[in-house]
Amino acid sequence: MINHKIKVLDVIKIALEAGKHILDVYHSNNVTVEYKNDASPVTIADKKSHNYICQQLSKHYPNIPLISEEGDLPNYEQRQQWHTAWFIDPLDGTKEFIKRNGEFTVNIALVEKGIPILGVIYSPAQDLMYFASSWHGSYKLSNCHAILPTIHHEFELIKTAQQLPINYSNEAFSIVVSRSHFSSETQAYVDQIQQQVGDVHIIEAGSSIKMCLIAEGVAQIYPRLSYSMEWDTAAGEAIVMYSGGKVEEYGTQSPLQYNKEHLKNPFHIVTAKPNDNLVIARFIYK
C-alpha cells in the first residue's frame, strides 16, 4: 500500500487549478470542437486540463504512471506490470461543456491492483469538489475557490468537508440517468424498476456528477447501460465505494476492474448506501 505517500489535498488542488483552465475556455467566445476517431468531441479545454494535471501529478509523484483520456495509452505488456496508476479524465462531459449546461467535471483517480483507492471529482461550474480515499472515506466540499486556499493540512480538509452520504429526509426513490448517453437498455431498466416498485423520480445529469449524486444520497441508483471507459468511472467509483455504495457489473454483480487490456467498461449499476427510511431500498439492495 502506498496511501501514506499520497496527499489527497495535493490532488484536490491540482483538480481545482485544472478547473480554472477549463473555465477560461468555457467563458471565452470561441470554443473550437474537434472529433476523435471514435467520433467523441474534444476541445482545447480538454487538452489544457490534461497537460496541467499530468505535469503536476508527475511532479508530485514521479514514480506513478498515468493513464489519461487525452494521452497516449502504453501497451498492455507494459501496463500489466504496474502496481499503481493514475486514471484521469481531464474534462468529463465534453458534450455538456459544448452545450454550456455546466455539467462537466475533472476526474482524477488512483488505482491500485485494479481497484480505485482514491478519487477526486471537481465540478468547475458549480465549484463543488467530491473526494474519497480508502483511508479517509468520502466527502463533499463546496465553495472551493474560497475555502481551499486556506487549507494546508489533511486534517483541516476532513474537518471542513461534509462526509458522504449526507442524510436526506426525502422519501422518494430516485434514479439518476445520463443526459447524453441514455440508451434503450437504460429505458428498459427504468421501466422494469417502475413496474416492480411504482413511481420513481428520474434525475438527468451529465458526466461523473451522476456518481456523485449516488454517493451523496440524492439518488439511490444509477444504471450505466451504455458506453464508458475506465477513466470515466474510476474516480466516481472511489467516491461511491467509500461512501458505502457499490459499483457492479450489470447481470453478474462483479466489481469493475481497472487497467484491463481493453479499457472499455462493461455495463454496470451504481447503488447508494442503503437507506432504512426508504422501504424500496430493501428491495433494490437485497
Results as ranks from 00 to 15, higher is better:
residue 16 L to E: 12
residue 222 Y to A: 14
residue 284 I to A: 01
residue 36 K to T: 09
residue 59 K to D: 06
residue 144 C to H: 00
residue 8 V to H: 02
residue 237 E to M: 03
residue 220 Q to C: 09
residue 42 V to C: 08
residue 221 I to N: 02
residue 270 V to S: 06
residue 255 P to N: 11
residue 228 S to P: 07
residue 33 V to K: 13
residue 152 H to A: 08
residue 238 A to N: 04
residue 136 H to Y: 12
residue 73 L to D: 07
residue 92 D to K: 06
residue 180 S to A: 09
residue 107 N to E: 08
residue 226 S to D: 15
residue 260 K to A: 12
residue 57 L to A: 09
residue 233 T to P: 00
residue 231 W to Q: 00
residue 123 S to N: 15
residue 278 L to C: 04
residue 16 L to Y: 05
residue 155 F to S: 14
residue 30 N to D: 14
residue 13 K to Y: 02
residue 75 N to M: 07
residue 117 I to K: 01
residue 111 V to K: 00
residue 278 L to P: 03
residue 87 F to M: 13
residue 95 K to L: 04
residue 80 Q to I: 11
residue 178 S to Q: 06
residue 120 V to T: 10
residue 166 I to S: 03
residue 3 N to K: 05
residue 1 M to A: 09
residue 249 E to V: 11
residue 267 F to N: 09
residue 206 G to R: 00
residue 37 N to I: 15
residue 126 Q to G: 11
residue 145 H to K: 10
residue 257 Q to K: 15
residue 33 V to W: 02
residue 207 S to I: 03
residue 55 Q to G: 06
residue 73 L to I: 13
residue 84 T to R: 03
residue 209 I to N: 07
residue 16 L to I: 13
residue 240 V to C: 10
residue 4 H to F: 14
residue 192 Q to N: 12
residue 49 S to C: 07
residue 57 L to S: 01
residue 153 H to D: 09
residue 125 A to W: 11
residue 259 N to Q: 03
residue 18 A to M: 04
residue 51 N to Q: 12
residue 24 D to H: 09
residue 50 H to Q: 09
residue 137 G to D: 02
residue 54 C to T: 15
residue 282 R to N: 14
residue 172 A to M: 13
residue 78 Q to N: 10
residue 162 Q to G: 07
residue 249 E to I: 15
residue 282 R to Q: 08
residue 234 A to S: 06
residue 197 V to F: 13
residue 165 P to T: 12
residue 244 G to K: 03
residue 25 V to E: 08
residue 220 Q to M: 05
residue 244 G to L: 07
residue 69 E to F: 06
residue 61 Y to E: 00
residue 70 E to C: 11
residue 86 W to L: 03
residue 279 V to N: 05
residue 79 R to V: 05
residue 108 I to F: 04
residue 257 Q to S: 14
residue 141 L to A: 00
residue 227 Y to P: 01
residue 203 I to C: 06
residue 259 N to I: 15
residue 272 A to V: 09
